[in-house]
Design a protein around this nucleic acid. Structure first.
Lengths: 144, 144
DNA sequence: TTCTTTTTGCAAACGATTTGCATTTGCATT
DNA sequence: AATGCAAATGCAAATCGTTTGCAAAAAGAA
């Protein structure tokens, strides 16, 4: 089992190549996404964005998240059925451990689990297109 | 790996014991839940309910789902970030394979995966309170 | 049956997200 | 640098799933 790590790919280039205009709001939102370690929701991204340019609207945040998701640049999660939370789609696939007390998210990856999932799906006559594994956890306090 | 199976526990007794009144809407909704194989959302339950008694309201469905969830009689899922879908909490824990073409849900259970999850959480300093494993799949068509 | 309390149906409120539309902007072209 | 046009924006209104306040109705104990 290994931790995932943040990289910083050049999304502007990719967007341009896909024929998407690179506007001021988009640049700012991309910056926020590539420079954060957490998994913010649209409202959080919006608030960080208007600190840089207060003319940015919430709908643009939502529209941009949809755009980036379609392009595969970000991933969307709905932990606990709450609002969508986003993260840049850096390199490797990983799953999530969510601290139910703080909402913090830890990323992890297990080849063994992935293999078992494939096996199960196959034995039921299916192939996996994507999956979602979330561990809702409480921190272990050694002294109790 | 094994499939889960439907049972039909006597929820009315449990509800009474918990000091909850057993009303006509509740009886009908419980009946729907214990006699279905699928994972219906509130709207679907509502429609099935008004076929039996057209005076039942959607808010009562929602209220009842919340009640039953708190009592541990049902489980709530939010596949794909869509509306909550429910199932009776029959016996053993299981995970879900969702057919992305039809929305059908197949239940499965893997001790091996559960064990690995525990290990991972522990190695990160956490204990799992609950988890969620969903495999979004497409049916394998042998001839292509 | 009567009383008290819980539950209901309804309509209005809600939070997250999407949409229509007029205006502004990016950017390819002069 | 100025022009033109499609694409993107901001705003407000709409939408979807869900919750809530409240007066009326029903459950269950006496």
């Amino acid at each position: 089992m290994k931790h995932a790590m943040n990289q910083k790919p050049d999304y502007e280039k990719e967007l341009r190549k896909a024929g998407v205009r690179i506007t001021r709001p988009r640049r700012i939102i991309l910056d926020i996404l590539t420079s954060t370690e957490d998994h913010p929701d649209a409202m959080k991204i919006f608030h960080r964005a208007i600190e840089i340019d207060d003319s940015i609207s919430l709908s643009t945040v939502y529209r941009t998240m949809n755009l980036l998701e379609e392009m595969g640049a970000i991933h969307r999660h709905a932990f606990n059925g709450g609002p969508s939370r986003f993260e840049q789609a850096h390199g490797e696939h990983h799953d999530h451990l969510i601290d139910i007390e703080t909402g913090d998210v830890i990323e992890f990856q297990s080849d063994k689990i992935e293999k078992l999932q494939e096996e199960i799906a196959r034995s039921l006559g299916y192939e996996i297109t994507h999956h979602r594994l979330e561990l809702y956890c409480r921190k272990i306090t050694p002294g109790e």
